Computed example of a mutant assay.
Amino acid sequence: MRYKGIVLSIASTLMISACSSSPTGRNQVVLFSDTQMSSLGQQSFSETKNELPISKDTKINAYVQCVTNAILDYVPIQGSFSQWEVVVFDSPQVNAFALPGGKIGVYTGLLDVAVNQDQLATVIGHEIAHVLADHSNERMSHAHIANTGLQISNIALASQDYRNEIMALMGVGVQYGVLLPYGRTQESEADVVGLELMAKAGFDPYQSVELWKNMAKASGGSHTPELLSTHPSHDTRINELTDKARRLPAFSGTKPNCAKPV
């Protein structure tokens, strides 16, 4: 009993000392530094690039980069890295992800469902929002406090014992079958922050609703797209996106013109 009390006391101290606020003002517990998270994100991204084919289609790469750059113009400068990297993976997965350290991955299968620049911007804005809100750090911190056996604080991603689990906690790893979906609170937060980002960049926020409708149609009742399985598309979510889009300020600048390859 005494040991249990000590453990609880240490956990409580860690949670109090590591308290922070998300972009929406929500209280968070994050135990790891931005530098640690960026290092893990960069290693994870390198592993993914080594194990998945990278698209060599110049038009597709230019299109994805165009949409991403338009959003990144409205993303605050990050202290732990100086530049974002975007890679398009040649894979039928309907998915995308962003990792600490400024790493963004987009699967070509997503372009079959995100049918225009505004819908692609919805996904990319959402994934970038996960990074800005420290969701990977938050999830890893919860796993560490819960003593899941992941010795995250003193482990290198190169360790085969924990590599897949850490990648899953960071939001990537569909190809390993161990992806751990973000919680509902984090998903809603990424929806809000991501929608604000893409709207500031001049993309149509109402297309976010059309995107999730497309996701539902793409499932065909038999196979759920990876992005839909980890980003649930319920009526409540669509209603929340519609309500948020209505309350966003009108865009008065020059809208992006990123041409999707035919």
Results as ranks from 00 to 15, higher is better:
Thr242Pro: 00
Met15Arg: 12
Ser21Gln: 14
Trp212Gly: 01
Asp134Leu: 07
Thr108Trp: 13
Ser33Cys: 07
Asp204Tyr: 08
Lys255Arg: 15
Thr122Pro: 02
Leu52Gly: 04
Ser38Met: 06
Gly79Tyr: 05
Asn95Ile: 14
Val123Pro: 00
Ser9Glu: 14
Ile10Thr: 13
Pro225Ile: 04
Phe97Glu: 03
Val193Glu: 02
Glu85Thr: 13
Ser20Gln: 08
Glu226Arg: 05
Val193Trp: 03
Ala259His: 11
Ser55Ala: 09
Glu210Leu: 05
Ser219Pro: 02
Met170Pro: 01
Glu196Trp: 10
Val172Met: 09
Leu211Val: 06
Lys244Gln: 10
Leu14Trp: 11
Val29Lys: 05
Gln207Ser: 06
Gly5Tyr: 10
Lys103Ala: 02
Gly125Val: 01
Gly173Asn: 09
Leu195Asn: 06
Ser17Lys: 12
Pro76Asp: 02
Ala250His: 08
Gly25Tyr: 07
Thr48Ile: 12
Lys56Cys: 10
Val88Glu: 06
Val193Tyr: 04
Ile16Tyr: 08
Ser233Pro: 03
Gln93Asn: 12
Gly253Gln: 07
Ser153Met: 11
Ser233Gly: 02
Val86Pro: 01
Arg247Ser: 06
His144Pro: 04
Pro53Ala: 09
Val113Gly: 00
Gln43Pro: 04
Phe45Asp: 01
Gly183Trp: 01
Thr236Ile: 11
Gly101Arg: 09
Pro232Leu: 11
Lys4Thr: 09
Glu127Thr: 00
Tyr176Ser: 07
Val7Met: 10
Ile16Met: 10
Asp57Arg: 12
Thr236His: 10
Asn239Gly: 02
Pro256Gln: 11
Ser229Cys: 06
Arg246Cys: 11
Ser219Gln: 08
Gln186Ile: 04
Gly25Cys: 06
Thr254Pro: 03
Ala133Asn: 05
